[in-house]
Amino acid sequence: MIQISNVSKHYGAFQVLTDCTTSVSKGEVIVVCGPSGSGKSTLIKCVNGLEPFQSGEIVVNGISVGDPKTNLSKLRSHVGMVFQNFELFPHMSITENLAIAQVKVLNRGKDEAIDKGLKLLERVGLKAHAHKFPGQLSGGQQQRVAIARALAMDPICMLFDEPTSALDPEMVNEVLDVMTELAKEGMTMMCVTHEMGFAKRVANRVIFMDQGRIVEDDSKEAFFANPRSERAQQFLAKILHH
């Protein structure tokens, strides 16, 4: 589904990604973790072309992201993305947030789009809030709406960029529960997150990044039981023992 081959990226002299190679198969759930500044968010944003990269290749569902001839808007319309800060559109109601891209990008009828949006809203347990505006919802609720908004586009895979980092602790689980459901249904997912509990329960594989490089890329069992690199051992020790 997603092939990342030898991707490198730099801002001026600063190397953000160095020779990153990995792949995500259909139905797989990958957790990407690592210290801040390790390039994990940048890597995931390269997958749908939100961040350009200078060398290497990323192929999503047979389409090369870096190819200048690729219609990136079209590719993005079926790669769902969820952001750290939700990024719902504050000037639209929840219903409009869910429908707008379906109507304007996929050319669905308005009624059909609203219908689909409301069904997904029900699925994330927020049907009662359809008429409200994003500012009236809690962070956790907004993030669930953001997931529903991405799902409304019938994505072939989903990218999550630290979806719970901006949330109060008591709201983290409601978002993780939605993500877990999604994984169970067989959605292909690439998640940048520090939620190691989620990784242990749900992930197939864990990628550990440090200083722009993929340091470990292993099954979750192997990663948690016996990380090979010292850097990953230190990271796990810090994040699990408090």
Partner: peptide
């Protein structure tokens, strides 16, 4: 905020 543009792009908007 720049994230709004990113979100719109990520949904496939031109």
């Amino acid at each position: 905020p720049k994230g709004q543009v990113a979100a719109a792009s990520a949904l496939g908007m031109t």
